[in-house]
C-alpha cells in the first residue's frame, strides 16, 4: 500500500509540516486537559489532533500517514471506548452512580497543587476514539482517492473480469 508511486511532494508543505505537526499535537493535548472547566475537551482535542494527521495525508498520502501513525485506527477506537466505559463503570464500583465524577487533589513537586477529576480519563477515551475515527476515515476513504489517475481503471478492469 505504502509503496505506491506518487507525484513529487511540495517542498513548502513538507517544511511547514515539520514545524506545525508537533505544535498542533501539543495544542490538542492542551485542549484535552483544559476541557474540564474551559473550552476544549476530548472531542475537540481529538479533532485538532486529527487535523494534524490530515495534514500528513495531504502532504504524502496514506503511505506517509501509516508511517506517522503506525497504530491501527480500530485498535485506537476500541481502546478509547473501553477506557471511557471503564471510567464510567468505575464510579459504580466506588459506590457512586454510573458516570459520576470523582475529584482528586494531588501535591505534585514541581507543579504545586493539581486538581483532577475522573472525567479526565473519560475524555482521554473520547480523544482516542475521535483520533482513531479520523485515521480510519483517511485510510478507508482517502486510500481510494489516493490512487494516481489512470491506474485504477486498468487494474479495476483486470480484477473485475474474474467475477
Amino acid at each position: 500500500m505504502g509503496k505506491r508511486t506518487r507525484p513529487p511532494q511540495s517542498l513548502i508543505l513538507d517544511t511547514c509540516l515539520g514545524a506545525v505537526f508537533h505544535t498542533v499535537l501539543v495544542f490538542s493535548l492542551f485542549l484535552l486537559f483544559a476541557g474540564h472547566n474551559a473550552p476544549g475537551g476530548g472531542f475537540i482535542g481529538g479533532l485538532v489532533a486529527g487535523a494534524a494527521f490530515v495534514l500528513h495525508y495531504v502532504a504524502g498520502g496514506t503511505g506517509q500517514l501509516t508511517r506517522v501513525a503506525p497504530v491501527a485506527p480500530f485498535v485506537l477506537m476500541g481502546t478509547g471506548l473501553t477506557l471511557a466505559v471503564l471510567v464510567g463503570m468505575g464510579a459504580l464500583v466506588a459506590g457512586g452512580q454510573l458516570l459520576e465524577s470523582g475529584v482528586l487533589s494531588l501535591d505534585v513537586p514541581v507543579l504545586g497543587k493539581v486538581k483532577t477529576t475522573s472525567a479526565l480519563p473519560f475524555d482521554i477515551g473520547v480523544y482516542l476514539i475521535v483520533v482513531g475515527l479520523v485515521l480510519a476515515l483517511l485510510g478507508s476513504l482517502g486510500g481510494e482517492a489516493d490512487r494516481p489517475a489512470g491506474e485504477p481503471d486498468d487494474a479495476g478492469a483486470g480484477e473485475g473480469g474474474s467475477e
Partner: peptide
C-alpha cells in the same frame, strides 16, 4: 464495554 474490547 465489550464492543470497545472487541474492536481493539
Amino acid at each position: 464495554l465489550a464492543a470497545g474490547v472487541s474492536l481493539a
